[in-house]
Design a binder for these strands. Sequence first.
DNA 1: AACTAACATGTCAAGACGAACATGTCGCGG
DNA 2: CCGCGACATGTTCGTCTTGACATGTTAGTT
Lengths: 175, 175
Amino acid sequence: MSLRHALIGLLAEEPASGWDLSRRFESVLGGVWPAGHPQIYLELRRLEQDGLIEVESEGPRRRKAYRVTGAGLAEVRRWLTSVEVDHTLRLEPLLRSVFFWLMTPEELATHLDREAAYFHALAAKYRELAAAKDRGEFGQSPQTRSLRVAAEAGVRLNQALGEWADWAKGNPPER
Amino acid sequence: MSLRHALIGLLAEEPASGWDLSRRFESVLGGVWPAGHPQIYLELRRLEQDGLIEVESEGPRRRKAYRVTGAGLAEVRRWLTSVEVDHTLRLEPLLRSVFFWLMTPEELATHLDREAAYFHALAAKYRELAAAKDRGEFGQSPQTRSLRVAAEAGVRLNQALGEWADWAKGNPPER
DNA sequence: AACTAACATGTCAAGACGAACATGTCGCGG
DNA sequence: CCGCGACATGTTCGTCTTGACATGTTAGTT
C-alpha cells in the first residue's frame, strides 16, 4: 500500500505522467521499492477516483499528466507522520545465508565472492551519487537533499552487506 | 518463490510439522522473510505433491510431520548454487526518506529518533543472539553456525540503519 | 464436569505483484 | 514517405501474500 503514497509524494514534487513516474520509480525508488508500470497506471486511476490527484494536462499520445490535490498532499503527510512505519525486511541473500550449511565450502566461497562484489559495487554507485549531490550537481532543493539522505542509506546498507559477505568468507559455517 | 526453498531447507535440518515450521519461520526467518501459516500449509501440500517432501509421521491433533526427500534436497542445493540471487530490497523506512522534505523539521526529528531507537534495539538483539551462539549455547552444528552468519548480517544491517538515522538527524534535508 | 490456553490445520476473499501481451503515436534517419 | 525505435498507455492472467474466519484437539486447571 506504500505505492499509493510514494506516487503522491513524487507528484508533490512536480506534475508527471504515468510514464514519467514509471521511469522515476525505476531510477529513484527502484533500489528501495520496485514497481512495474502496470501497478503504477492502475494506482494512478484509483488515486484520481479518490480525489488525491487530478489530471493537470493531456498531451500527445494520450499522455496524461497528473498533479497532486490538497487532499493528496494531506494524505502523504498523514502517512509520513501518523501511520506506523512498516519495518518488514525481505532480503533473499540473507534468507540464503540460513542455508549456507547445505553448500560445499567451495560453492560457498564462490557465492560469497560474488555477493561481496555485488554489494561493494552498489555501495560505490551510491557513494558516487551522494558525492555528486554534495557537489551540488542536482541543485539544493529540499527534494534533492532528501534524496541525498536516501543515498546515504544506500551507501551504508550496501557497505554493511558487502562487509558482511567479506566477514562470512573468514567465518564459514564449516570451520 | 523463495518460500518453497526455505521450507525445504528448514526440513533438511529435521522433520517438522506445518505448525513447527510456522513458528520457526517467525523466530528464525521472520526478520528476513515473513510468511504466515496459510502460505506455509499451502506450500507444504504443493511440495508434497511435487515429491520434494513426504509425510514422515502423523501425530495427535492431525499433526503431520514432513521430511525432505532426495529430490527435495537436490532442489534446495540447485537453488543455492545455480539460481540467480534476487537482490530486490523493499524497505519502507528508506522509501519514506525520499519524502522527508514533506515533513516539518520537528516531525522529522521525532521520526528519526524513533527510527534510530528501533534499529539500535534490533541490532542489540542480534548482537546478543550472536554472542550466545559464540558461547556455544546452541551447540556447534553447521546449522547453528549458519544462523550465526545470518545473525551477523542482522547486527550489521540494523547497526548501519541506526547509524544512518543518527546521521540524518545531523544532516536534515532542510538545513 | 466445565473451562481455557495453547496446539494444529485449514479455507476464503481480496489485494499486491510481475510477466507477457496488445495497441497506438511521434520523431527521425534514410 | 517509409520504417524503426523510443514514447505512452493499457489489459490479462497467474501467482504471491495477507487477514479474517472456521474447526477441532489436547492438557491442565478450577
